[in-house]
Design a protein around this nucleic acid. Structure first.
Lengths: 235, 235
DNA sequence: AATGCCATCATTGGATCCATTGATCCGACT
DNA sequence: AGTCGGATCAATGGATCCAATGATGGCATT
């Protein structure tokens, strides 16, 4: 261990530790957030190169905050960095995507269990409205936005510091493949998803959390199985 | 969206993307790994300050790779960075630790399901041996090392790119509290854990994956419930 | 004497410059 | 003609320097 001599002084110090607030660098965080939004909204495709200099120029900054931003995005799994070579938008294999969905199947019901008791009647009404809007969604981007809004609203009652952000990262990592898959289908043609959403809202209205968890599990699982039938979407 | 004009050129480019290998910076990665080991082995305690300059001096490098290393550790949840202020070893609240354990309860059985079919008779024999060694473990550090080795061996058959690393991060984030909790107990006094480990190995030997998953779930859950009875370990 | 304000200082964030690594292209050799 | 090897070039990794922010201590004032 190389960090021995300072350790005891440090452990003794325990200076006023922050409240867990992960507020971060000014420029680097701004760049990371903008890039994240760009990636999630489909501006970049998996496999495309991210040149530090180009990004630095876009944000009118030096390459240094860009490097730190890329590091953050790598942590989110959105970017893949190879030493001395460069950064690329992460490209998931079918196997990796499958794992992510299986994690979601098991973790999101837990988040729902945290959230459900705090959902208000207004939230439930809004959920019903979102289902209707999705049934009438014309284009893919609207559909995706509403779908995310729907599920995030079901989770909005959860006051969690780990679970919520974890689920959000899982959603972000698979966002591109959700878009690609949605494009394959006629958004209004696939009515199963709307039925599932309705069942979920109904269970939440009855405060039947176990049934809600089951429906959510099945919803994610069915999506995964359908996704697995389209290996052409992957590398 | 600020990154529009280069997007189309980038999406078209799709230059040879790397194989998902997250190999990384030479110095920054070395620093990150060393710091990670130091944190996990208990050299630093939660809440202790990490000064960039001190670390840079320890590793005979400039502050720049240290900053990137801290960023990586922040991504792992081991370090908390506050803008313009500094970095601290992450301090989990009881609620956060509880969430992590609940995630583990649901995710680790899935990883076990991936691993079980690939476990060899030699692996199973080694697992039995580890249980015996744990029963005779004299000190806390040995106990912790064997416990980690045992569980990681049960997962060693899993060829996963997402799940495995995810579980490892969950273990790392809670390592300090596992140590603190273990110290409270007489390592040899608590025989429940050894019974659970034996049940797990037995189920794996019978290739009864469902029972193995149940035992593992209960094992993690029981640990969580006992941990929750010791709020004095947290901030 | 206690408290609030101000100045100094320590520490982090960012920019520029240099070193190093990896990729591409051309030429020579088989 | 094809392939292997080397040289050039582009892009990343790291070091040093400068700016800005937060913290600490002393001083004055009430």
């Amino acid at each position: 261990m190389t960090a021995t001599e300072t350790a005891d002084t440090e452990t003794a110090a325990t200076e006023a530790a922050p409240a867990t607030g992960t507020r971060d660098g000014i420029a680097s965080q701004r760049i990371a957030n903008s890039l994240r939004d760009a990636i999630l909204s489909g501006v970049y495709s998996p496999g495309s190169r991210l040149r530090q200099e180009d990004i630095a120029e876009q944000f009118d900054a030096s390459r240094l905050p860009v490097r730190e931003a890329l590091r953050s995005l790598q942590a989110d799994g959105l970017v893949t960095i190879v030493a001395n070579t460069g950064a690329w938008i992460s490209r998931l294999s079918l196997a990796e995507c499958r794992e992510m969905y299986q994690i979601r199947e098991r973790v999101e019901p837990l988040l729902l269990k945290y959230s459900q008791p705090m959902l208000t009647p207004a939230d439930l009404a809004h959920l019903e409205s979102l289902v209707h809007q999705m049934e009438n969604a014309a284009d893919v981007e609207t559909f995706l936005r509403l779908d995310r809004e729907f599920h995030m609203l079901t989770y909005s009652g959860a006051d969690t510091l780990i679970l919520g952000p974890t689920v959000e990262r899982l959603w972000n990592s698979t966002q591109h493949y959700r878009r690609a898959f949605t494009k394959l289908q006629n958004p209004r043609g696939n009515s199963v998803i709307h039925h599932e959403h309705n069942l979920l809202v109904a269970a939440l209205q009855r405060t039947d959390i176990e049934e809600a968890e089951r429906v959510l599990f099945g919803h994610i699982r069915r999506t995964r199985l359908e996704l697995e039938r389209h290996p052409e979407l992957f590398a």
